[in-house]
């Protein structure tokens, strides 16, 4: 058989893949360095706020992905 690496098969698939990769990059160096300040926003340290921005981002991207995949609900 002809061997291959699995890749997205549609434009939306590529967008989701890039969104997943971008979300992961947001939590690592060098991005995390930009928020490494002893300052507060809404009463929380910048790094804590950024952490929960990433949490929110993960949730929203997966919600979008589910919508795009047209996940049916009849079986649950």
């Amino acid at each position: 058989m002809k061997h291959y690496v699995v890749r997205p098969r549609s434009g939306k698939g590529w967008i989701l893949t890039l969104a997943f990769v971008a979300l992961i990059a947001l939590g690592l160096w060098p991005v995390i360095g930009w928020f490494n300040q002893p300052r507060l926003w809404l009463g929380l340290p910048w790094l804590a706020v950024w952490t929960y921005v990433i949490v929110l981002g993960c949730w929203l991207v997966m919600l979008l992905a589910n919508r795009w995949l047209r996940v049916s609900s009849h079986d649950d």
Binding site: V55, L56, C58, W59, M62, L63, A65, N66, L69, V71, S72, S73, D75, D76
Partner: peptide, 14 residues
């Protein structure tokens, strides 16, 4: 119960 169940649970996990 299904593949969709995992996607939905994972979505809300964060």
């Amino acid at each position: 119960r299904s593949a969709d169940t995992i996607r939905r649970s994972a979505t809300w996990l964060p």
